[in-house]
Write a protein that binds this DNA or RNA. Sequence first.
DNA 1: GTCTATAGCATGATAGAC
DNA 2: GTCTATCATGCTATAGAC
Lengths: 220, 220
Amino acid sequence: MNEPRRSSSLHGGPHPGKTPGATRKGSETRARIIKGALEALENGGMEALTTRKIAASAGVRLATLHYYFDNKESLLLAVLEDLIADMDLAYREIPHSSNPEERVAALIRSMWRYVQRTRNKQIAQIELTIYALRTQGAEWLAARQYNAYIDFYGRLVFSPDEAENAEKSRIGRAVARQMLIGIDGLILQNYALRDDAASEGVEALILATQVYLRRLLANS
Amino acid sequence: MNEPRRSSSLHGGPHPGKTPGATRKGSETRARIIKGALEALENGGMEALTTRKIAASAGVRLATLHYYFDNKESLLLAVLEDLIADMDLAYREIPHSSNPEERVAALIRSMWRYVQRTRNKQIAQIELTIYALRTQGAEWLAARQYNAYIDFYGRLVFSPDEAENAEKSRIGRAVARQMLIGIDGLILQNYALRDDAASEGVEALILATQVYLRRLLANS
DNA sequence: GTCTATAGCATGATAGAC
DNA sequence: GTCTATCATGCTATAGAC
């Protein structure tokens, strides 16, 4: 709705006419700050996340941080944007089977492997998503994040040539939503209980998603 | 493990020999502060949650808050404890069917109705859980919260007489875990996408849980 | 048990030299 | 584009009267 009001602060800088990050050196620094913010967030959580810690974690002076970002808020939203952009790089294990049910199983297992390697990152991402949802004018970012995931995984449910089909694309997206629901729930529960009985949860999720997929295909 | 180190600060006060909240009036105030903290958290989120806002939201002076709680941390953990204690009061729609699969369906629908009525509370609870997990010495609280839910729902999967059976109790708990995974994931996705296509997700979750339950019963 | 007042400090953000 | 120095504010927490 009134989205543009704040979205401007997401990219540009406060300096009229100037554009921090336009030069090569500048954009490298900008990227380092974003990376530092993510690291600090992963280690300490939202509540302890201060601009000073971010600067330290990025190896940058506090003032430099404010040269690249209007304020803390726009930096945090930039971190979330960055996570979205890097998503496809993280999960590059594309399933090779042509059977959609096998693809779903491979996909979920691959996601879960990645999630386990990057526990803190996953929690950080959830914290950032909630932060965006509570930040007036940034709710759309959270939605975009989810849609990006749904899109990405939805495509991978079927083999590339099948994915062109409109109906299969629709089904793929629906399946992706269910996969993401399960993964998010698993992340929270596994993180809280700290047990590895989560592997049973993963297998159950695979089965459930396959059943769901089969049902959607039958009804189409 | 080293759980007792901080758990003491969860209940008592800092005043040696004294016990804030021992009198009737005192415990009412304590409860009001906890309620105010939850309200403030639901409205503004973790990042904006200050002791001042909590005090205002509770209709209490800032100093009064510190009379009842050692510090902000112990207050926040007390809020999470309170949420656990109130859980059974919130979901009092006990399914009446004797068929476990029907009970699961009724349970999930009832949970989801409640979740929809209390969106912000659910997000607040997730934020608190993550907070506890990041707070040294309070991780056990997050685990206890999950276990309380698993216990509570696990019991409701079978009718009261069946629930005594050890094997059914085990199965009930496993099913409850899967239900919670789905609900948590649904909360996040529904909150982020703000669509009501979540109802499809709920139906899919019911089906998946029923399939899972059936499989566990067959293998037992 | 609740109040007013305030200490003591960390925070986000800016000014201005280089 | 990065630095040092600093501001103004709001924070958690405490002191002490009532």
